[in-house]
Design a protein around this nucleic acid. Sequence first.
DNA 1: CTGAAAGCGCTTACAG
DNA 2: CTGAAAGCGCTTACAG
Lengths: 350, 350
Amino acid sequence: MNVVPRARSVNVLEIAKLSGSSKSAVSRVIQNQPGVAPEMRARIQHIIRAHHFQPSILGRALRGAHTGVIGVLARFMGSGFTAEVIRGIDDEVKRKGSQTMCMLAPGIDEYIRSWRTLVSGRHVDGVVLLAPPTDIFKYPVDELDKPVVLCAAEPPDKASTWKAAGSVVLDNQTAMKQMVKHLLDQGCRRLIYLAGQPDIFDCQERERVFLEAAAERKGVRASVVQGAWTRELAVSVVHGCLSARKQKPDAILCWNDYVAMGCLQALSELDIAVPEKIAVAGWDDVPGADHLDVTTIRLPMLEMGWQAARILFQKTNPGNVGLASPSHVSLQMSLQIRRTTVRRAVKSRA
Amino acid sequence: MNVVPRARSVNVLEIAKLSGSSKSAVSRVIQNQPGVAPEMRARIQHIIRAHHFQPSILGRALRGAHTGVIGVLARFMGSGFTAEVIRGIDDEVKRKGSQTMCMLAPGIDEYIRSWRTLVSGRHVDGVVLLAPPTDIFKYPVDELDKPVVLCAAEPPDKASTWKAAGSVVLDNQTAMKQMVKHLLDQGCRRLIYLAGQPDIFDCQERERVFLEAAAERKGVRASVVQGAWTRELAVSVVHGCLSARKQKPDAILCWNDYVAMGCLQALSELDIAVPEKIAVAGWDDVPGADHLDVTTIRLPMLEMGWQAARILFQKTNPGNVGLASPSHVSLQMSLQIRRTTVRRAVKSRA
DNA sequence: CTGAAAGCGCTTACAG
DNA sequence: CTGAAAGCGCTTACAG
């Protein structure tokens, strides 16, 4: 196959020739390094601008230098969560003059592969792992030479090679306690939790703290139901769940808002009054959840992204000593009380 | 700054040494090219597997060869549209054994910059431009050496340098005609269209075909209202719009479903019955639109992504002559009739 | 301050 | 079939 002659854009050598200097000088100017006479520096800068010259990231990357590109690895695009956190990361990355590159990798094998593509290919200065599959922690991280920040996940073993990674996590425990307290305050005593996929860190943690929070109060029955991962699955799971149990639950807490929608649909089909007979709550506060008046937990998705990018930059440029800000952040979520759980007299809706 | 000694992973030269051959042979094996003795080929393959060797995309890219990476440029992550189309692209790209890299670039300048990062950096074999700002067509495309496929956009001038680009567009005209016909069938005669951002191709086109479709029937008043780009803006725009007009509209068509939610909220605050007084329709069929029972237009987002990736591969590998499939595709959308527009007796909801 | 040279990891004519 | 060599675009010791 003959190689198509490529419309070559200008490169360092040409800039050097045009300015009557050398590649070295041009490179130093590009990076704002000393060692170039002021007049020559000005001349080179002029030529660079005149030709809209942008140094190739490839050459730079191959050489092992900074690329000005930050990688983000995510599993799914389906949820608003991924999209919104990426937006937060990108905000902050752009503010620093860098660019974001995202890759999608649902399964653990693809995840590892994409990670290698990004990192060992030296495309990027660092990587944000966004809600990685929990199996990721079985792989060592230290053989990789680029900084890593975890988003919505934490290594199980603090002593592992992962301890060098930064992290931004959600305080699931506090939020779940608030949620459970609210449901109990509404008079609910038989709680069901429709849990999410088991290979997601937040899902695991929420399931656990749900049971813990419910166990703190006497006379409360709490159980976890698996399999309702999507809205469609939730419909049939709720149907099955309610027909199988003698004693109906009086509250169903869902791992996300879409599942809550499926739950509401099933209850509507069964003619079960919400919230009178069964209270329903979701998680995430997706767009539309307020319009549907579903009680939920609001996630600070944008801030999660900002923090992740901030920490990554801190690791990427250790030069900026200054006031070292934390590399591990835990963010609070906020309970949004709406119609689907308010059973008491005081239905205060601001 | 001293360079941290990087944990070098194995490279072509090492594989060559280990197998007792040369870089050339290894490279040929990697690419399944002829010119290597069967036994040597087997030996090299064995070593490659044993060391989990993955050739660096950088070296390959720098040399101008295929990288197995497809670039996607998008403006926003906010809407489900972007996320879902990317998912479709990624599906198809993975099926071909390649990987997807996405970049976000809201404004035209960032868009151009990211495009150059992707293409002139030779990171990618080709690029999908997802709902680009319409200003993009002012920039020539032929100086770039990588294939391009447009998603949800078409160059205004078929004779421009853009004619080499593939495209997947939505048939806005047909869908809009169906929507307007449906509203007229429901007895509506005074239509308002809440239009989207003017630098988006689909928004421009839908605005135009809305007026065309309404003009086809006598006795129909149709007007376009600008500024209701988001759900929040929609609330105040609808308030303003209804207080300003003597004759109220009897149907409000919104450029997307979130805006329709804002519209419904405003009407609810004004105690205006939907659909009896005013019918409301959205566009996109986002998750939750069915639960809210909003009439809308469903977009084949996943298929849009599949098609874009298919066309791009066709351009990337012109070798696969076979049956050349089309490089320009127009996809149909489907009208979803729901509660917010059904004013006639026959309220058939399947 | 200045620039020639080596090298990052690959692929591809080219000569043997 | 086989391998040495050049080169993609950059950065960085190194010598002047």
